[in-house]
Amino acid sequence: MSWSEFLDKYQGPLIDAAWTTLRLAFVSFGIALVVGIIVVSFRVSPIPPLVRVATWFVAFFRNTPLLVVFFLALFGLGDLGLVYDFFPTAAVALGLYTGAYMAEVLRSGINAVPQGQAEAGRSIGLGFIQLMRLIVIPQAVRTVIGPIGNLFVANFKNTAVASTISVLELTGQSQRMFNDAAAGVWRVLIVITAIYLLFLFPAGYVFRWLDARFSIKR
């Protein structure tokens, strides 16, 4: 098969697959941000049962293989009467998984805000919400841009696992092409690798730039 024949046959499916990967990466990362914020606010709240739930949540997702999380989402949610299509199931499973890591990253950001900053805020009369909004969160976010960038990249790569529950994203598409002997194993590998790198190198660059631009000098 020549390159032009290869492109004739696979250009369409590759674009569809790349689009699916991209959509899944962004949707799941959005879910992860929301989940991370909710879980971390439980984790740092003064209410003991919420703290416990957040701790368990994080421990569960950090120590269970993503593949198992996907299968549990597929079958477990089904048995709970929540049946969704493959794509939303994958987005939610991946979002919860990355969300657990997100919660830990956000927590480390909050813990990195010195107590003195909060005391200074309180002593000029800021209330709890103002203190959060004006001092703690802006500072916490700036210290975790780098780690959040790493999470974005990890989450992007983890979209590949969605191929195991029938989401036809890039890695799933690569599997189909690998099975087409005429396509050529090396060619498939190079094309898929190039597409992933095309997405991930700029992402790494953007987060490094954000980090350099917004991180706090102390």
Binding site: V153, T159, A160, S163, T171, I192, T193, Y196
Partner: peptide, 8 residues
Amino acid sequence: FRALPLLL
């Protein structure tokens, strides 16, 4: 190798 999905 850090940039590629392990599954791939």
